[in-house]
Design a protein around this nucleic acid. Sequence first.
DNA 1: TTGCTGACCGACG
DNA 2: CCGTCGGCCAGCA
Length: 112
Amino acid sequence: MMVEDSFFDKVYQVSRLIPVGRVTSYGAIAKYLGAARSARMVGWALNGTKTRGMDVPAHRVVNRKGVLTGKQHFGQRSLMQELLENEGIIIENDQILNFSEIFWDPEKELAL
DNA sequence: TTGCTGACCGACG
DNA sequence: CCGTCGGCCAGCA
């Protein structure tokens, strides 16, 4: 199967590996890809998922504080929260309460 | 082609 | 504690 080495495509691949009920951060993905300081690109890459129509659970990606900073990019601002809550994630005021419990670190889980 | 922007993060005062 | 700034890199006018 063809594997794209582009930064964007890697973001898509890693994002799809995020288990249900778990979340990760832009910085974690960026760091896993070897570009810890390019966390903004991760968010930018996820922005392209909607236009590209890719099946990437971007709602499981939040910032390092566990805040749904990218909720406004889901069309409806409540959509991202509802999707996460539907997976058993508790969110209050755009903040994931048990963030540290459900945090999914690709570097740790994928154990490279 | 140049320049601005952006769903972030960490450092500094 | 809080506000500000630089950095990283790809997409778009």
